[in-house]
Each structure stands twice: as structure tokens, then as C-alpha cells.
């Protein structure tokens, strides 16, 4: 309860500060609209915002699922085999060094203006944090467990399944929580480059027509969406991983 109250207080302080800046600076509303104006724009355009939110959320969720799945598989492969580490690690790091903004137009060219180019962007952006967090966990299994497994004549795959993967679940949970925050960024970048749907597209459209209040409304909706996704991922992580392990 305290936490909720705290969040509400912080939210109110931010709104008050925002209003104060608007009032004191006297900036025109197409540069910085007031919170009330943004709230009004949100209410007036709620159907539009909901429709576009649905598109973005779909992209994010599919991206999260595919990216997490690929990250999990890659991390297990990397942990399993030294050769996979030699081969895949540089590619993985190289993929992170590439700016996603640069890849967005190519992905749109390859996958079209529809859903899949945005899903691909979300996948690209979350693949590394999930892989890296889970791989770290897989490589840090307490040595005592591995010793015990060795004296029990365990096979490599059994150790992976019954010890290393469960021991690394808290790390995977951290990776997925990060992914829940990053995935919307990927999807929105994709929408900016080429789309006729989604909150990113709506922001770009509103910005182009100097409807800054609508742009802010769409941006705040995206922020709330990210926070909700993070909270859901956090709750799921707590449910899946025993408390003492988190």
C-alpha cells in the first residue's frame, strides 16, 4: 500500500513540476502542452490510442516471446559447448554493437511495413540482454552442486536440465524483466521507420501535424505500457522463481 502511495505522490510531483514549467516559461502549447491539455487530448483520442496501443502491444508481446525463446536457446547452447562460445559470442557482441536505428530501414525493406519488421526490431533489441543474463547464470552454478552431480555420475545434459538451468532461473528472470522494458523501444523504432499502425506511428503523425498534446498522450501511454509489462514480468518472475533465489 505504501509503495502505491509513494508512486502516486511521485506522479503528482512530476505533474506539478510539469505544470509549473509550462506556466512559468510561457512556451506555446505546440512546443510544450500542459498536463491538462495532454489528458484532454488522450480522452478525446482514446479510441485511436487504444487501437494503436493494441498494435504496439501485439508487436511487443510477440517480440518478447520470440526474443526470450531465442535468447534462452542461445544461452543454453553457449553454456553447453566451448565451440559455440568461440563461434557465437563474437557474433552476439557484434549484433549489439550495431545501432538498431540503422537496421530498422533494412528490416522494413526485408519484412515489409507490417507487424513482422517491428517484431524483428523488438527481438533484436531484447535478444542480447536475455541471452547475456541467462548465460551468466548458467556459467555461475555453485561449484558444490556440480561436484555433487559429478560424484553421482550425472550426464552433461542431466546437469544442465536439473541443476544449471534451475540455478540460473533468477538470472533469466532479470533478463526478461529488462527485455520487458527494452521491447517497446524496438517496436516503436520499427514503427517510426515505416508503419501505418502503432503508438510510434501515432507519435510521428501527431508530431508532423503539430499536435504535440496527442504526441505526449501517445508517449505516456507507451510509458505506462512498459511499466505494466515490467510489473507483470516481475510478478511472473517471483511466482516462477523461489523467493530466496531472487
Amino acid at each position: 500500500m505504501n509503495k502505491i502511495l509513494q508512486s502516486i505522490c511521485i506522479f503528482l510531483v512530476v505533474i506539478a513540476l510539469w505544470q509549473l514549467i509550462v506556466s512559468l516559461s510561457g512556451l506555446p502549447r505546440f512546443i510544450l502542452p500542459s498536463p491538462m491539455r495532454v489528458a484532454d487530448a488522450w480522452w478525446q483520442n482514446r479510441d485511436l490510442i487504444f487501437t494503436h496501443s493494441f498494435y504496439t502491444l501485439t508487436e511487443i508481446l510477440i517480440g518478447l516471446m520470440i526474443g526470450s525463446f531465442l535468447g534462452i536457446i542461445t544461452a543454453i547452447q553457449l553454456a553447453y559447448s566451448k565451440y559455440a562460445r568461440i563461434l557465437l559470442r563474437p557474433i552476439l557482441i557484434f549484433s549489439q554493437a550495431l545501432p538498431v536505428f540503422a537496421l530498422a530501414p533494412i528490416l522494413t525493406l526485408w519484412l515489409g511495413y507490417g507487424l513482422w519488421s517491428k517484431v524483428a526490431m523488438a527481438v533484436l533489441i531484447i535478444y542480447f540482454p536475455v541471452t547475456s543474463a541467462f548465460f551468466d547464470g548458467l556459467m555461475r552454478t555453485p561449484s558444490g552442486y556440480l561436484d555433487l552431480a559429478k560424484t553421482m555420475q550425472a550426464s552433461k545434459s542431466a546437469v544442465m536440465r536439473h541443476i544449471r538451468i534451475p540455478a540460473a532461473l533468477p538470472n533469466l528472470a532479470s533478463g526478461i524483466k529488462l527485455a520487458a522494458v527494452y521491447a517497446p523501444i524496438g517496436a516503436v523504432i520499427g514503427e517510426w521507420v515505416g508503419s501505418s499502425n502503432g503508438l510510434g506511428y501515432l507519435m510521428l503523425l501527431a508530431n508532423g501535424r503539430a499536435k504535440t498534446d496527442l504526441m505526449f498522450a501517445a508517449m505516456i501511454t507507451l510509458g505506462v505500457l512498459s511499466v505494466v509489462l515490467y510489473v507483470i514480468a516481475d510478478k511472473l518472475a517471483h511466482r516462477l522463481v523461489p523467493k530466496r533465489q531472487l
Binding site: G144, L148, M152, Q153, A158, H162, R244
Partner: peptide
């Protein structure tokens, strides 16, 4: 082998911990 630390797997219950050898050997 039994070490100073009990090496019980925290995610598994006691029964599963006791049977972990058979699980690991399939």
C-alpha cells in the same frame, strides 16, 4: 560424497533432493 555445505537444491523439495542422484543418471 557429502560436503560441509548440505548442497540441497533450493528449488526442489526434500524428497526430490533425496532422489536427485537417480534423476541425474536418468
Amino acid at each position: 560424497y557429502m560436503a560441509q555445505s548440505d548442497l540441497l537444491l533450493p528449488w526442489a523439495n526434500i524428497l526430490d533432493n533425496v532422489m536427485i542422484g537417480a534423476k541425474l543418471r536418468g
